[in-house]
């Protein structure tokens, strides 16, 4: 896909993350290149979301090293970080304020960070995520699931970050709406040179969206594989193989003699 392998967008070294006294992520090493799209897959509870949360500063109890675009991440709140890296959650209904219009949701990050020309930027972003301007003054409950996820993506992009953390961004959507959102994410990545670190449980989505993936089990990365391993199931770790089998393998190849 022509990303520049010499620049690291996200670097995780020997990362451990805990909630209270329980360590839920252990010894994770991942390097995501700038412009790359990288997936975290694995059974639920394996620590995928926790990794994103640690990077985003939402799970502060970690050890090891995290850096984004060459800048080491500290444990304290980092305002500038928001301009480099943003997160999108699975359930846009839960993550959008019920009493704020789309316009307010999109303007807010600009206000907080002192960006000017806000109205024009909001209009531009709505167009970029494929939302008609008539949705601008609606509330979340007046939008469909797919429209809400477009708003959540638009909000994350308002500060023009280069790195996006996507936590199951289409798991709550119907297949046809999922297709629209995946197309949108792919187009935005191409147009804006974004780097994605994406959690999903859907291996075909990885095949469509990502270059590589880390397979996680019980807080550890058991294998890092190229997305093309999904074509023929050429995984080396037994857990990865069982996850692949449970997802139905590649029926397009099974049919062939």
């Amino acid at each position: 896909m022509g990303w520049n392998m010499s620049v690291t967008a996200i670097s995780l070294q020997n990362l451990d993350v805990s909630y209270g006294t329980t360590k839920v992520v252990q010894g994770v090493n991942i390097e995501v290149a700038e412009g790359e799209s990288f997936a975290l897959v694995g059974e639920s509870g394996s620590g995928k979301s926790t990794i994103l949360r640690a990077i985003a500063g939402l799970a502060p109890d970690w050890t090891g090293a995290i850096s984004v675009l060459g800048a080491a991440r500290g444990h304290q709140v980092d305002r500038d970080f928001a301009t480099r890296c943003q997160m999108v959650f699975q359930d846009p209904y839960g993550s959008l304020h019920p009493r704020k219009t789309v316009d307010a949701v999109l303007s807010e990050p600009l206000l907080v960070h002192g960006f000017g020309n806000r109205s024009a930027r909001v209009a531009e972003m709505l167009a970029a995520v494929g939302l008609d301007q008539r949705f601008r003054f609606r509330f979340p409950h007046q939008l469909s699931g797919g429209q809400r996820q477009r708003v959540a993506i638009a909000r994350a992009l308002m500060l023009e970050p280069k790195v996006m953390l996507l936590d199951e961004p289409t798991s709550a959507l119907d297949v046809s709406v999922q297709a629209e959102i995946l197309n949108l994410l792919k187009k935005l990545r191409r147009q804006q040179g974004l780097t994605y670190l994406m959690v999903t449980h859907n291996l075909p989505v990885v095949s469509f969206m990502c270059d590589r993936m880390a397979i996680m089990q019980k807080g550890r990365v058991v294998e890092i594989a190229p997305a093309t391993a999904l074509h023929d199931g050429s995984f080396t770790d037994p857990y990865s193989q069982s996850l692949y089998a449970a997802s139905g393998g590649n029926p397009d190849r099974k049919d062939q003699p």
């Binding site: 197309n183 792919k186 075909p204 469509f208 997802s247 393998g249 590649n250 397009d252």
Partner: peptide, 20 residues
């Protein structure tokens, strides 16, 4: 047919998924 086409495949080679 539209629904089927919108589902990503394990060996996905399409640049874009068709939408309904």
């Amino acid at each position: 047919r539209g629904l089927l086409a919108a589902v990503p495949r394990m060996e996905e080679t399409r640049e874009e998924l068709p939408v309904l």
